[in-house]
Amino acid sequence: AVARETARFADGDVPRPERWTGWRVAPESVEFWRDRPFRLHDRLRFDRAGSGWTKTRLWP
Rank of each mutant, 00 (worst) to 15 (best):
P15K: 00
W59K: 15
D11Q: 10
V30N: 00
V2Y: 08
F38K: 13
F38Y: 13
L58G: 01
R43D: 06
D35Q: 09
A26D: 11
L58D: 02
E31D: 04
W20E: 03
G50T: 06
P37H: 04
P27F: 03
R19A: 01
V14S: 03
F32L: 06
F38V: 13
E31W: 01
A49N: 15
V30E: 01
W53E: 00
L44N: 06
L58S: 02
T54P: 03
V2H: 09
A3G: 11
F46K: 00
F46I: 00
R8H: 08
W20I: 04
E5I: 08
P37Q: 06
R4V: 09
P17N: 15
G52E: 12
R8M: 10
A7M: 13
D47Q: 10
P37R: 04
T6C: 07
S29Q: 13
A26F: 02
V14K: 05
A7V: 13
P37N: 05
P37C: 03
F32M: 05
F9H: 03
T56R: 13
R57I: 14
F9W: 05
E28G: 10
R57Y: 08
W23P: 02
T56W: 02
E18N: 07
P27T: 08
A10H: 12
G52R: 10
A1C: 10
D13N: 15
R36C: 10
D11N: 14
S51C: 08
A26Y: 01
L44P: 04
D35E: 10
G50K: 04
L44M: 11
D47M: 10
D11M: 08
T21W: 02
T21L: 01
A3F: 08
A1D: 11
W59C: 13
